[in-house]
Protein backbone atom coordinates (compact mmCIF):
# COMPACT_ATOMS: atom_id res chain seq x y z
CA UNK A 1 0.00 0.00 0.00
CA UNK A 2 2.41 2.64 1.16
CA UNK A 3 6.13 2.69 1.76
CA UNK A 4 5.64 3.35 5.46
CA UNK A 5 3.33 0.34 5.74
CA UNK A 6 5.89 -1.97 4.14
CA UNK A 7 8.66 -0.61 6.34
CA UNK A 8 6.58 -1.14 9.49
CA UNK A 9 5.69 -4.71 8.51
CA UNK A 10 9.32 -5.50 7.73
CA UNK A 11 10.38 -4.29 11.17
CA UNK A 12 7.52 -6.16 12.88
CA UNK A 13 8.44 -9.40 11.11
CA UNK A 14 12.09 -8.85 11.98
CA UNK A 15 11.23 -8.23 15.62
CA UNK A 16 9.04 -11.32 16.04
CA UNK A 17 10.88 -14.16 14.30
CA UNK A 18 8.68 -17.15 13.47
CA UNK A 19 9.76 -20.41 11.94
CA UNK A 20 6.46 -21.65 10.48
CA UNK A 21 4.59 -18.88 8.67
CA UNK A 22 1.60 -21.04 7.64
CA UNK A 23 1.10 -22.33 11.19
CA UNK A 24 1.24 -18.77 12.54
CA UNK A 25 -1.38 -17.62 10.04
CA UNK A 26 -3.60 -20.56 10.96
CA UNK A 27 -3.28 -19.72 14.66
CA UNK A 28 -4.33 -16.12 13.98
CA UNK A 29 -7.32 -17.19 11.85
CA UNK A 30 -8.47 -19.61 14.55
CA UNK A 31 -8.06 -16.99 17.24
CA UNK A 32 -10.12 -14.43 15.34
CA UNK A 33 -12.87 -16.92 14.48
CA UNK A 34 -13.05 -18.61 17.88
CA UNK A 35 -14.50 -15.75 19.97
CA UNK A 36 -12.84 -17.32 23.01
CA UNK A 37 -13.92 -15.53 26.18
CA UNK A 38 -11.65 -14.43 28.98
CA UNK A 39 -12.54 -14.83 32.64
CA UNK A 40 -16.23 -14.04 33.27
CA UNK A 41 -17.24 -12.30 36.50
CA UNK A 42 -18.86 -14.46 39.18
CA UNK A 43 -21.51 -11.83 39.93
CA UNK A 44 -23.44 -12.54 36.71
CA UNK A 45 -23.89 -16.26 37.35
CA UNK A 46 -27.53 -15.65 38.38
CA UNK A 47 -31.00 -15.99 36.80
CA UNK A 48 -32.62 -13.44 34.47
CA UNK A 49 -34.73 -11.77 37.16
CA UNK A 50 -31.67 -11.26 39.35
CA UNK A 51 -29.74 -9.91 36.34
CA UNK A 52 -32.41 -7.21 35.88
CA UNK A 53 -32.04 -6.21 39.54
CA UNK A 54 -28.25 -6.25 39.29
CA UNK A 55 -28.40 -4.04 36.20
CA UNK A 56 -30.63 -1.48 37.95
CA UNK A 57 -28.43 -1.51 41.04
CA UNK A 58 -25.23 -0.98 39.05
CA UNK A 59 -26.77 1.72 36.82
CA UNK A 60 -28.00 3.65 39.86
CA UNK A 61 -24.53 3.40 41.41
CA UNK A 62 -23.22 5.52 38.52
CA UNK A 63 -25.92 8.24 38.88
CA UNK A 64 -28.42 6.90 36.35
CA UNK A 65 -32.07 6.75 37.39
CA UNK A 66 -34.08 3.64 36.59
CA UNK A 67 -37.84 3.13 36.37
CA UNK A 68 -39.81 0.01 35.53
CA UNK A 69 -43.01 -0.15 33.48
CA UNK A 70 -45.20 -3.13 32.70
CA UNK A 71 -45.72 -2.56 28.98
CA UNK A 72 -44.47 -0.26 26.22
CA UNK A 73 -47.84 1.54 26.23
CA UNK A 74 -46.97 3.01 29.65
CA UNK A 75 -43.86 4.70 28.25
CA UNK A 76 -45.29 8.19 27.44
CA UNK A 77 -46.72 8.62 30.94
CA UNK A 78 -43.58 7.25 32.59
CA UNK A 79 -41.37 9.70 30.68
CA UNK A 80 -43.78 12.61 31.26
CA UNK A 81 -43.75 11.84 35.01
CA UNK A 82 -39.97 11.74 35.07
CA UNK A 83 -39.66 15.06 33.24
CA UNK A 84 -42.26 16.70 35.47
CA UNK A 85 -40.38 15.55 38.58
CA UNK A 86 -37.26 17.25 37.18
CA UNK A 87 -39.19 20.36 36.22
CA UNK A 88 -38.33 19.84 32.57
CA UNK A 89 -40.43 20.48 29.46
CA UNK A 90 -42.40 17.55 28.02
CA UNK A 91 -40.71 17.94 24.63
CA UNK A 92 -38.20 15.47 23.26
CA UNK A 93 -36.41 14.29 20.18
CA UNK A 94 -37.14 10.59 19.73
CA UNK A 95 -35.36 7.93 17.69
CA UNK A 96 -37.44 6.75 14.69
CA UNK A 97 -37.39 3.19 16.02
CA UNK A 98 -40.31 0.84 15.15
CA UNK A 99 -40.79 -0.06 18.84
CA UNK A 100 -41.20 3.62 19.74
CA UNK A 101 -43.32 4.39 16.63
CA UNK A 102 -45.87 1.82 17.74
CA UNK A 103 -46.67 3.81 20.87
CA UNK A 104 -49.53 6.34 21.04
CA UNK A 105 -47.77 9.48 22.30
CA UNK A 106 -50.77 11.76 21.65
CA UNK A 107 -52.61 10.38 24.68
CA UNK A 108 -49.95 11.83 27.03
CA UNK A 109 -48.67 15.35 27.61
CA UNK A 110 -45.48 14.41 25.74
CA UNK A 111 -44.57 16.20 22.51
CA UNK A 112 -42.08 14.04 20.60
CA UNK A 113 -40.14 14.87 17.44
CA UNK A 114 -39.19 11.81 15.42
CA UNK A 115 -35.68 12.65 14.13
CA UNK A 116 -32.00 12.93 15.03
CA UNK A 117 -31.48 15.48 17.81
CA UNK A 118 -30.71 19.11 17.05
CA UNK A 119 -28.27 21.27 19.02
CA UNK A 120 -31.05 22.83 21.13
CA UNK A 121 -32.99 19.66 21.96
CA UNK A 122 -32.89 19.28 25.74
CA UNK A 123 -34.25 15.75 25.91
CA UNK A 124 -33.51 12.75 23.71
CA UNK A 125 -35.24 9.36 23.78
CA UNK A 126 -33.45 6.35 22.28
CA UNK A 127 -33.98 2.61 22.11
CA UNK A 128 -31.19 0.38 23.49
CA UNK A 129 -29.92 -2.73 21.78
CA UNK A 130 -29.23 -4.38 25.12
CA UNK A 131 -28.05 -3.64 28.65
CA UNK A 132 -25.22 -5.33 30.54
CA UNK A 133 -25.92 -6.24 34.17
CA UNK A 134 -22.22 -6.67 35.03
CA UNK A 135 -21.68 -2.90 35.33
CA UNK A 136 -25.11 -1.32 34.61
CA UNK A 137 -23.99 -0.52 31.06
CA UNK A 138 -26.34 0.40 28.19
CA UNK A 139 -25.56 -0.85 24.69
CA UNK A 140 -26.66 1.42 21.84
CA UNK A 141 -26.31 0.19 18.26
CA UNK A 142 -26.33 2.98 15.66
CA UNK A 143 -28.51 2.75 12.58
CA UNK A 144 -31.34 4.55 10.77
CA UNK A 145 -33.65 3.82 13.74
CA UNK A 146 -31.15 4.74 16.45
CA UNK A 147 -29.01 7.84 15.77
CA UNK A 148 -25.86 7.82 17.92
CA UNK A 149 -26.05 11.60 18.51
CA UNK A 150 -29.21 10.95 20.57
CA UNK A 151 -26.95 9.48 23.25
CA UNK A 152 -24.71 12.54 23.51
CA UNK A 153 -26.27 15.84 22.37
CA UNK A 154 -29.35 16.31 24.58
CA UNK A 155 -28.76 17.23 28.24
CA UNK A 156 -31.12 14.51 29.37
CA UNK A 157 -30.79 11.09 27.80
CA UNK A 158 -33.74 8.72 28.20
CA UNK A 159 -32.99 5.14 27.20
CA UNK A 160 -35.59 2.42 26.77
CA UNK A 161 -34.68 -1.23 27.25
CA UNK A 162 -36.75 -4.41 27.59
CA UNK A 163 -36.12 -6.59 30.65
CA UNK A 164 -35.47 -9.52 28.30
CA UNK A 165 -32.64 -7.52 26.68
CA UNK A 166 -30.70 -7.30 29.94
CA UNK A 167 -27.75 -9.67 29.70
CA UNK A 168 -24.92 -10.69 31.98
CA UNK A 169 -21.61 -9.79 30.39
CA UNK A 170 -20.04 -7.70 27.64
CA UNK A 171 -19.28 -10.88 25.70
CA UNK A 172 -23.00 -11.77 25.70
CA UNK A 173 -23.55 -8.39 24.04
CA UNK A 174 -21.12 -9.15 21.20
CA UNK A 175 -22.68 -12.56 20.62
CA UNK A 176 -26.09 -10.89 20.32
CA UNK A 177 -24.79 -8.17 18.02
CA UNK A 178 -23.03 -10.68 15.80
CA UNK A 179 -26.19 -12.73 15.32
CA UNK A 180 -28.49 -9.67 15.05
CA UNK A 181 -26.53 -8.27 12.13
CA UNK A 182 -25.97 -11.54 10.36
CA UNK A 183 -27.25 -11.25 6.82
CA UNK A 184 -27.45 -7.47 6.85
CA UNK A 185 -24.24 -7.22 4.85
CA UNK A 186 -22.37 -5.42 7.61
CA UNK A 187 -20.90 -7.51 10.39
CA UNK A 188 -21.55 -5.00 13.17
CA UNK A 189 -23.29 -1.62 13.56
CA UNK A 190 -21.29 1.44 12.49
CA UNK A 191 -21.14 2.67 16.06
CA UNK A 192 -21.66 0.69 19.24
CA UNK A 193 -21.89 2.89 22.32
CA UNK A 194 -21.44 1.33 25.72
CA UNK A 195 -22.79 3.85 28.22
CA UNK A 196 -22.19 3.54 31.96
CA UNK A 197 -23.74 6.45 33.81
CA UNK A 198 -23.57 10.15 33.00
CA UNK A 199 -20.84 12.28 31.46
CA UNK A 200 -18.28 13.12 34.15
CA UNK A 201 -14.81 14.47 34.89
CA UNK A 202 -12.40 14.78 37.79
CA UNK A 203 -10.07 17.08 35.84
CA UNK A 204 -11.05 20.31 37.62
CA UNK A 205 -9.32 20.27 41.04
CA UNK A 206 -9.85 16.50 41.23
CA UNK A 207 -13.50 17.02 42.17
CA UNK A 208 -16.07 14.78 40.48
CA UNK A 209 -18.42 16.80 38.29
CA UNK A 210 -21.08 15.44 35.94
CA UNK A 211 -22.45 16.65 32.61
CA UNK A 212 -19.18 17.62 30.93
CA UNK A 213 -19.75 17.18 27.19
CA UNK A 214 -22.33 14.42 27.19
CA UNK A 215 -25.68 14.22 29.03
CA UNK A 216 -26.11 15.65 32.52
CA UNK A 217 -28.81 13.10 33.34
CA UNK A 218 -29.41 9.52 32.25
CA UNK A 219 -32.82 7.98 32.82
CA UNK A 220 -33.38 4.32 31.96
CA UNK A 221 -36.86 2.90 31.48
CA UNK A 222 -37.03 -0.89 31.74
CA UNK A 223 -40.07 -2.40 29.99
CA UNK A 224 -40.96 -5.64 31.72
CA UNK A 225 -42.97 -7.18 28.88
CA UNK A 226 -42.05 -7.11 25.20
Amino acid sequence: MSEARDAIFTRVRGGIPRSDDAAARRAVAERLAGHTRGLQPQRIAIDQEALVDLFAENAQAVDATVSFINSAGDLPDAIADYLRSRNMPAQAAIAPHPDLDGIDWSASTMEVHRRAPKADDRIGINRCFAAVAETGTLVMASGPDSPATMNFLPETHIAVVAASEIIGSYEDMWDRLRSANRGSGEALPRTVNMITGTSRTGDIEQTLQTGVHGPKALHIVVVKEG
Binding site: V62, A116, T135, S142, P147, R190, T191, T196
Partner: peptide
Protein backbone atom coordinates in the same frame (compact mmCIF):
# COMPACT_ATOMS: atom_id res chain seq x y z
CA UNK B 1 -14.55 3.05 38.27
CA UNK B 2 -15.89 -0.34 37.19
CA UNK B 3 -16.33 1.05 33.70
CA UNK B 4 -15.72 4.47 32.17
CA UNK B 5 -18.88 6.35 31.17
CA UNK B 6 -18.43 5.98 27.41
CA UNK B 7 -16.80 3.15 25.49
CA UNK B 8 -17.37 3.54 21.78
CA UNK B 9 -16.68 1.09 18.95
CA UNK B 10 -16.49 2.63 15.46
CA UNK B 11 -16.56 0.65 12.24
CA UNK B 12 -16.60 3.12 9.39
CA UNK B 13 -18.51 6.13 8.10
CA UNK B 14 -22.21 6.89 7.81
CA UNK B 15 -24.21 4.06 6.28
CA UNK B 16 -27.29 4.10 4.07
CA UNK B 17 -30.25 5.53 5.97
CA UNK B 18 -28.16 6.78 8.91
CA UNK B 19 -29.32 10.13 10.29
CA UNK B 20 -25.94 11.10 11.71
CA UNK B 21 -22.29 10.15 11.91
CA UNK B 22 -19.23 11.17 9.85
CA UNK B 23 -19.33 10.78 6.07
CA UNK B 24 -15.72 9.62 6.01
CA UNK B 25 -13.72 7.62 8.54
CA UNK B 26 -9.96 7.39 8.27
CA UNK B 27 -7.56 5.50 10.54
CA UNK B 28 -3.88 6.45 10.73
CA UNK B 29 -1.57 3.81 12.20
Amino acid sequence: QEMSSYTTFSAGGRRKGDLDGPEAFHVVL
